[in-house]
Design a protein around this nucleic acid. Structure first.
Lengths: 136, 136
DNA sequence: GCATTACTCTAGTAAATCGATAGGGTAAAA
DNA sequence: TTTTACCCTATCGATTTACTAGAGTAATGC
């Protein structure tokens, strides 16, 4: 299941991408428009900022804005930052790999085999989908 | 993330599919061989039984066995029984559909659009993968 | 400067889910 | 009639999720 965190994050990013000008947008504006708790959204945008997806400006006329063009922001980045691993099991994860304790041989494991296929496919979708694709 | 329940369920099914003869296999045998808590496995096999995937036989020489040929047991069935919805959000789920409360228009929703693609792909993999495919 | 605005950060918490564990009950086979 | 093994219910600690509260700090405009 996709967490609300990720869901809200994507919605906020799309909202920013849809702005005509690249001016800072206040959290409260996004929060109202997308029906997201303001405080919760605050923490989400903060992580996106800390990881180079968003920039922010303080004070009057401040807010958040995209640091890159929507077409250059890939869904893999967003998913990994907000949701964590893309794989359904750690033993097939690229960025969050962990060995299964109960499994003697990964290569002989049916779950591994199946989930590897799923990960490959899902990853390809996220790689080929940019923020621009979602904003049309 | 895939739950242990599903993971163990798949492993147990593969174990059963790999048996030469179609004789009942005791829970304790599967549990030891696959490093799964016996009691936990018990409840998993029970759900698979209640939903027509497995049969069971009581008493001495009893145990669980597949009700169908491995090639006729699709991963969609197994995943839905043990893991639940295949989709990452309820609003793109076929069997567990639910409308998002915060979303005014599903067709205009970026998350919906993205997750629909993911679900289609994942579903296709599960549909095209049978227990037989995983047992080789 | 100084008030306003808006971002930043730290805690905490209610609710749900997960992954078991415990223990007794019941049916069937030898 | 004893053994074996399936069947069912209840409980429980740990973790995660989705927020909420509240205080602090940095810019901006007048």
């Amino acid at each position: 299941m996709l967490s609300n965190k990720t869901k809200y994050g994507i919605k906020a990013l799309v909202f920013l991408a849809k702005q005509d000008q690249r001016v800072p947008v206040q959290i409260s504006v996004i929060s109202k428009s997308e029906n997201i708790s303001q405080k919760f959204l605050e923490s989400i945008l903060l992580t996106l900022k800390k990881n180079g997806v968003l920039g922010s400006k303080k004070g009057k006329g401040g807010g958040y804005y995209l640091l890159k063009e929507p077409k250059d922001i890939s869904m893999t980045t967003v998913m990994r930052l907000l949701e964590g691993p893309i794989a359904m099991v750690p033993c097939v994860s690229l960025n969050f790999y962990e060995k299964c304790e109960d499994c003697p041989d990964e290569n002989a494991c049916a779950v591994n085999k199946l989930m590897l296929k799923v990960r490959d496919n899902t990853l390809q979708i996220f790689r080929n989908t940019s923020l621009a694709d979602l904003s049309n």
